[in-house]
Write a protein that binds this DNA or RNA. Sequence first.
DNA 1: CGAAGCGTTGAAAATAATCAAGTCATGTGG
DNA 2: CCACATGACTTGATTATTTTCAACGCTTCG
Lengths: 232, 232
Amino acid sequence: MNRENQESLGRCALFTDLQEEELRDLARAARLDERGAGENLFLMGDPADRVYWIESGQIRLSKVTEQGEEVIVAVLGKDNLFAVVAGLRETTYPVSADAMTPSRLLSWGRSDMAALFGRHPELVVNAMEIVAARMRELQDRYHELATLAVPQRLARTLLRLADEHGRPGDQGLLLDLRLTRQDLAELTGTTLYTASRIVSGWSQAGILSSGRRRVEILDLGALEQLARSGPS
Amino acid sequence: MNRENQESLGRCALFTDLQEEELRDLARAARLDERGAGENLFLMGDPADRVYWIESGQIRLSKVTEQGEEVIVAVLGKDNLFAVVAGLRETTYPVSADAMTPSRLLSWGRSDMAALFGRHPELVVNAMEIVAARMRELQDRYHELATLAVPQRLARTLLRLADEHGRPGDQGLLLDLRLTRQDLAELTGTTLYTASRIVSGWSQAGILSSGRRRVEILDLGALEQLARSGPS
DNA sequence: CGAAGCGTTGAAAATAATCAAGTCATGTGG
DNA sequence: CCACATGACTTGATTATTTTCAACGCTTCG
């Protein structure tokens, strides 16, 4: 693993306390995983034996029911660590991970991670920090799901995605993701049809510009307003 | 703090690795907090400066929106530790905690906990374990909320409560909690009315016996069936 | 005894899901 | 390079579910 990787790792909250040298060893111990769009990294229920770091691309964490209904738990981009708990305990992954776009990841086996945590107990506190942050976000989303109507939730989903994955587009803030309406629905907890109707409506109103696997936010203020309180 | 408390703490997953002596010191360092039914322990947004252990009673963790809508995140009984993260980092509580019944709790300030974690880094791993388990449960509930109809969710809520707080009752499995229909609704993500209707229906069908702040499960099998797939 | 809190139930309304039938791009193979 | 198959998206009509609003009965407790 090269210097480039090492620099990327320096941006990871888990490893902030590490010395230059340790970081280099870590980069060297990592395995490089590459996945094309739609390819799987691991499935829910698989033994959780590796911790992953996203170098580039987007990873979708999702859960599927017996009935085949899918819910997207998170969409993670560049410079994100996930499956941290795999480094601490022998369990199974609680979600499946798939690449949404071609992605490069670094990963470490549990034994390597466990050894690192043994040498640097303070890193476990960092790991806790990461998990606690995810917990808080999930609690917020749970709360939204329980109390808000679909349009409000969808607005918030878009704002969250914009925050994490937005970049300047032709006329506004473009979501740098190739999300289908189905994906949007699964992120929001609704159906493909309802999501489509709402997106169409907002496009007509000039709030969004949307297309095939593409959403661009034109009027951020209006969207934020919709996120706060449903329309009259 | 006395020997009784010390024994109670021995049952805590966080402290399993501790020596007898450390456990005694821990019990001594603890503060005893008592709360009557409905009394508050801390509010969402308060500085998170104490970690709590439930000696007896039930604690409700909930979130409230600006509009006053409440969602119950968890109902915790005896022998549960919560607000673990307060021992690791300076943050604010992400939820409010209230006693549902008269409760006795032990608590420790952040500095005490931090010192303990410093002496015993392996405890941080235990703490992570506890948080990860909560995370998994929340992910499951999130998934249910997104994909299942109200009756199925309510059935699962009851089964979860029975698992954690059930004890043999007159004719079945009694939930050892004084939950109102409102509480049940907030746990399930629905309204007081819908929850009431469903509980009434199941009582008529002989699956439950319900009353004022009381639910007893008479036909566990039927409830499990309802949790799996909605009625025809 | 009275008030407050908790629970139930009916009727109406709103919301979202479902079903069905399209259109429109996109990219692929002929 | 074009035809076509596929996947993505849209939209209307219908249906189901759930919420909302309103009214009332029963307990429990002060």
